[in-house]
Computed example of a mutant assay.
Amino acid sequence: MSDQSLRGGAGAAGTGDSAVPEGEAGRIAAFRERHGLPGLVDVHTHFMPERVLRKVWAYFDSAGPLTGSPWPITYREEEERRLALLREFGVRAFTSMLYPHKAGMAEWLNGWAADFAARTPDCLHTATFFPEPGVEAYVRRAVADGARVFKAHVQVGAYDPADPLLDPVWGLLAEAGVPVVTHCGSGPAPGKHTGPEPMARVLARHPRLPLVVAHLGMPEYTEFLDLAEQYPRVLLDTTMAFTDFSERSAPFPAHELPRLADLGDRVLLGSDFPNIPYPYAHQVEAIERLGLGSAWVRAVCHDNAAELFRLP
């Protein structure tokens, strides 16, 4: 059965109906069994205030002209159902990636995320920031309050990550060793400050920053692999990479697979759940079909993130 038939097509999601694939938990359980996985750790899942999430979904509903392809939301479910699905899939730890698109939002989002993490033990306490006066103070408070991972979205926020207002933030997070999952690549459409060069300037100033490059830096895969090789604390997440959806518009270059294999201890599973236009199972199976072996799959889908976040 194709992924298109499993998800029920763009129309279902576009009208607000769920298109959760039947039998998917069993499909993922079989994947885990094939590779001896005790569970999955997903560093790129989205939970945010409902009214914010609805706006994100509305954006994806209209994203066809931007991406050149419809973008149905497969897991358009209420929060508790989304949490239940991740647990059914065997995801033992995940994030609440959230991000501001303007000044004045980040601190409020961080308050929501702290509460969400407090009532959701398997969620890694997530926080965010924006280049604005006071950013260093509220990032410092979030770290003190137990934030374990941050999200930075250079594309949506339309800011230069090397903005002087953020320099103390990157330094603080580098010193604290708190990872920052950063959408800095130019997919699905380039922004004013996307691409490898702005982040290269940040890393030149903060070489110990634990930067997680979202989407493997899609479509600038090669350049972000270069940064990972240059800076030992740069990691990459797999979000949407290798899937049929992304391969149509931004294929991962086959000649870079050996480099990806060599960086296997610094690649992390990410999915973009719930905002993906295909089943969750397809993401993990797309990683599997690279043919890099079970040890590599185990590291990517569980062990690397379990070590990074010191999971028991």
Rank of each mutant, 00 (worst) to 15 (best):
R32P: 05
P190F: 04
A25R: 12
R27M: 10
E22T: 13
E22H: 11
P49E: 11
L172M: 13
P164F: 02
S96R: 02
R289W: 03
H44R: 13
Y59P: 01
R141H: 01
F89G: 01
A189T: 13
L263R: 02
V267G: 03
H46S: 11
L260E: 10
R266H: 06
V202W: 07
V169A: 07
P168D: 12
T120W: 12
R119D: 06
W108C: 03
A158M: 08
A295P: 00
I287F: 02
A103T: 09
Q230Y: 05
A127W: 05
F89A: 15
Y159Q: 02
A214P: 09
R201E: 14
H255C: 09
I276V: 15
D145Y: 00
V156G: 00
E247N: 08
L311D: 14
G185Y: 11
T222E: 15
F94P: 09
A228H: 03
P274H: 01
I287V: 15
R148I: 07
E197R: 13
R32Y: 00
R92G: 14
G68H: 04
K102V: 04
M1Q: 04
P121S: 13
P196L: 09
P21A: 07
V43P: 09
L235E: 01
R27Y: 06
H101N: 11
L269I: 09
L209D: 04
A162C: 01
T45P: 03
D303C: 05
R87P: 07
S5R: 12
P168I: 12
R259S: 09
M218K: 06
F242S: 04
F245E: 02
M97G: 01
A306C: 07
D167V: 04
